[in-house]
Computed example of a mutant assay.
Amino acid sequence: MKEQFPVYDICTISDFKQEDILISRFAPYLQSHKNLALPHKHTFYHMVLFTEGAGTHAVDFTSFAVKPYQIYFMVPGQVHSWAFEGAVDGYIINFSVPFFQSFLLKQDYLDNFQFFDGTTNHAIINIPTELHRQIIYLFEAILHESELNLKLGLDMVKALMLQIFILIARLNTADAPKSTANYNYTLLRNFQKLTNQRFADLKLPKDYAELLYITPNHLNAICKDILGTSAGEVIRNRVILEAKRLLITLNLSVTQIAYNLNFTDSSYFTKFFKKYTGLTPEDFRKTL
């Protein structure tokens, strides 16, 4: 493990630096960027479709088996690593945060897609057989378009990518809670966005409920109904996730991490971390 945890921006691994996007078949990408198999972060969005291969890939410390016709999505800031077995191939698209902003009037349009909410279990999707040909066609069309350098070519790439996003989003429609009002689901998404932004300084459900203009009981009921967990646990899990991300960087001391997460002192942070993970921060580092 390196002292400085690697964080990659789109320019360090893209041949299209001025356009904020990288499009490639996966096998040559992996061959060119073998160091990306080690734990690292991205400052950009990351989408991979596997068409062949095996092994594991880990997103935010949760490991998944690699399977053909599995697609996964990552948002900026997530921790990621690979451990492949044998040959692996597919497609990869990396794109920057502002890539779609000049293309769409609604700059937060990607927030509509659950797989871009930063929640690990939403980001890994197995594509059903009936969609294999359509998904492959779209990825091939994106690759082809990126090689032609025609007028409005990047706009065509964006339009094709949006087709993929919409097709994948439709797969999750059946999984949405039928009895939950759209209003409550919107509140939950807003709560999750707020926890991603304010987890360091807001630690109590009542703080988030106030920002959402609802009562703490209402917020807790929404989380229990849709997620099966309490609002307090959602906040704690986000704090623990960030603590794990920071602990990978060995040149940050536990005291510095506790300070970054607004704990009163490192001993309180250590007790908190061990209570919910079963490991002290130092022991967690030894597992990496």
Rank of each mutant, 00 (worst) to 15 (best):
K2S: 14
Y8S: 02
Y8L: 09
D9G: 00
C11A: 15
C11L: 12
T12L: 04
S14N: 08
F16Q: 13
Q18L: 08
Q18A: 08
S24P: 03
R25P: 06
R25A: 06
A27D: 15
Q31I: 01
Q31M: 10
H33A: 05
H33L: 02
H40V: 01
K41E: 11
H46W: 08
V48R: 06
G53Q: 04
G55Q: 06
T56F: 12
H57P: 03
V59E: 04
F61P: 04
A65Q: 11
Y72C: 11
Y72W: 12
F73P: 05
M74E: 02
P76V: 00
G77L: 10
Q78M: 11
H80F: 13
H80P: 03
S81P: 01
W82T: 09
E85M: 10
D89W: 07
Y91M: 01
Y91T: 06
F95K: 06
S96L: 00
S96K: 07
Q101V: 03
Q101L: 08
S102P: 03
L105Q: 04
Y109Q: 06
D111V: 09
F115Q: 11
F115S: 09
D117T: 04
T120L: 09
A123K: 05
N126F: 06
I127A: 11
L131I: 10
I135E: 14
A141D: 14
L143I: 15
H144T: 15
S146P: 10
E147R: 14
K151D: 15
L152V: 03
L152S: 15
L152A: 15
D155F: 11
M156K: 13
A159Q: 13
Q163P: 03
Q163T: 15
I164L: 07
I164W: 06
I168S: 01
D175R: 15
P177I: 00
A181I: 09
A181N: 13
A181R: 12
N182H: 11
Y185L: 12
T186P: 00
T186K: 12
L187H: 05
L187C: 08
R189L: 06
N190D: 10
Q192G: 06
K193G: 05
L194R: 12
Q197A: 13
A200F: 08
D201P: 00
K206R: 15
K206V: 14
L211F: 03
I214H: 00
L219F: 05
N220S: 04
N220K: 07
K224D: 10
D225A: 02
G232R: 00
E233P: 00
E233Y: 01
V234A: 03
R236K: 11
R236E: 09
N237W: 07
N237K: 08
V239K: 01
V239I: 14
L241C: 04
L252T: 02
T255A: 14
N260V: 04
L261Y: 00
L261P: 07
S267N: 01
T270K: 02
K275T: 10
K275N: 07
Y276R: 00
G278Q: 02
G278S: 03
P281L: 05
E282N: 10
E282L: 14
R285L: 09
K286A: 04
T287Y: 08
T287R: 04
